[in-house]
Design a protein around this nucleic acid. Structure first.
Lengths: 202, 202
DNA sequence: TGAATTCTGAACTGAATAGTCCAGTTCCGG
DNA sequence: CCGGAACTGGACTATTCAGTTCAGAATTCA
């Protein structure tokens, strides 16, 4: 059974906890979950062991909080990018921007990279990535719904399936590009995904 | 500079080395690279530390050999599955079989899972996964070339791009299905990829 | 056969790391 | 202002793991 971890009751405590999570999230973004030790986190956050174990049951508990933090962050950004997209050209432009930003700093997908690292090693963290993917997919679904309402997408197209397929192409493209250290694969994967969507255009 | 690691000169040595790599590959398949310690490998292979360091410079060197082994194995199997595929329905059937086998034992893609784990932590191993992906993609390219020769695929379709896109969809679908523990995402991703290919059929 | 080479076993070292403990400090309601 | 609860510091433990060492066994080949 997991030992209790107190939630902070005061403002000061909440700030401490948050600072730990945020610094940890930065380190994880840079070095991955496995590549980040608790001691690294502690010096980065200017905190001490007992502080950490005051707020988190164990390492996995911290990792879960970090993953949740990064997913939330990613979804906030993606929401900004996608909330006003309601036409195919806008979607294309947004995706092109995503590819371009990847080219500029190829730091993988925050959610995808975490997911593969965490999936069968930390159930709580895995569930956070599931939520993150679901939110992302949902943003795509909403885009397709708006496209359908504006008559740009044929009725028979399943927004859910299109969203899943687009997300998969992105994730796979990122994986290939990250492995190959060359954004070309991501570019091609996105192009194909867009072409597939366009095939359902009115 | 990396310390020398002897290649085996005798049959016995070759067998020892191979046994270590194979057992290590099994453990890595089950627990991932990070989740497999040298000691685990040694007891599984019935070998000793000095044996290991006789054949491998260090842990990374062993990991590289393991990754190469698993990629090679995967490519052998994929070659068997794909070498005689020259029609779209055959490709669809093969992919459906892949999805079905994933449903039966959802052990991710051997290459993709390794790639994301190793990409920015072990340059030699990363290069092995690059080679593995290239071989896989090449198999798809050959399929598309055969389809094109038989007039089933229009000339303007780029076999390379189709292959990259298909591979990305597969990898992304596997990633999603693995984190969600539900083969549905992979299924949808493959369906979309096939539809995209079919849009280039004559 | 016997010397040189290749290969093997097992104990050891040192560093990193997750997790514990407890005494001391700060904060808050009454 | 005081008693208890929330919070903090940092030293300490136990373990795991990569890598070393070296004596000696097996193998090769002249």
């Amino acid at each position: 059974m997991r030992v209790m971890s107190s939630k902070p009751k005061t403002e000061r405590g909440r700030a401490s906890r948050e600072r730990i999570v945020e610094r940890a999230a930065e380190l994880v973004a840079e070095h991955g979950v496995q590549g980040t030790s608790l001691d690294d986190v502690l010096v980065a956050a200017g905190a001490s062991k007992s502080q950490l174990y005051h707020y988190f049951a164990d390492r996995d508990d911290l990792v879960e909080a970090v993953v949740a933090n990064r997913c939330e962050q990613a979804i906030v950004e993606l929401t900004q990018l996608l909330k006003s997209v309601s036409r195919l050209p806008e979607l294309e432009q947004m995706l092109a921007g995503y590819v371009a930003s990847y080219e500029q700093s190829p730091t993988g997908c925050p959610i995808g990279t975490l997911a593969s690292e965490v999936a069968d090693r930390n159930e709580g963290a895995r569930l956070q990535t599931v939520v993150g993917f679901a939110a992302w997919e949902r943003l795509f679904v909403d885009v397709f719904e708006r496209m359908r309402e504006s008559g740009e997408l044929r009725a028979e197209a399943s927004s859910e399936s299109l969203a899943t397929a687009l997300l998969a192409s992105l994730q796979g493209g990122i994986l290939l590009s990250q492995t190959r250290r060359d954004s070309h694969s991501l570019h091609v994967a996105v192009e194909a995904a867009v072409a597939h969507i366009r095939s359902f255009a009115s």
